[in-house]
Amino acid sequence: MTRLAAEAVGWAVEGRFVLVDVALALPAGSLNVLTGENGAGKSTLLDILAGARKPARGHVALDGVPLAEIAPAHLARRIARLDHTPGLYLELSALENLQLFHGLVQSPGAPLDAAALLERVGLAARDQRRPVRGFSRGMLQRTALARVLASGADVWLLDEPSTGLDRAGCALLADVLADVRARGATVLLATHDPALLPLADARLHLSHGRLVAAEVA
């Protein structure tokens, strides 16, 4: 079953197309890697797939429904996006951040074991309670990963998720990703990290504004 599909998606900046005729279909419960040289439009494509940008041409559909027709509130619950910013309030602690974002998209009373999630990404109990401003890049990235986990979304769009992570962090990331895939989530990650490539069910390559090769690893 195709969970997230893009059809003839195009994106232009200042009169020049960055993405042209991009088509993809991501099945439910799959882990896909998106590669491409710097400036190929990977982040833009992830933005479009997440519904954060409206494509200049074509459309994206979630479970066969065009994103434009899905209520943004519903979209926020289904699709999680991790970009080059951590997406965290720096003055809040990791726990507070998780609780806040969970509260914003989930109905009241939805269970959240924020401490366990943070434990899962390797954040010690004392680090969970201090403002994330003091965190290193890797710790921020781990917390951001926990935020995505807490969102409960079943489509994950991750942009360079291994940035700043140490070797243990990368292994943890791979572990988490394999885990959510097993639970039926659809993952698309843009990455240059060769360590993450073997995980992929499919590999997509962006080149010259087009998705040129979609080979199964």
């Binding site: 195009g10 197309f17 080149s207």
Partner: peptide, 14 residues
């Protein structure tokens, strides 16, 4: 028009 040309160029180069 510029966009159309740009799209064609991208398609051709691919």
């Amino acid at each position: 028009l510029q966009l159309e040309i740009s799209a064609q160029t991208v398609r051709r180069s691919r």
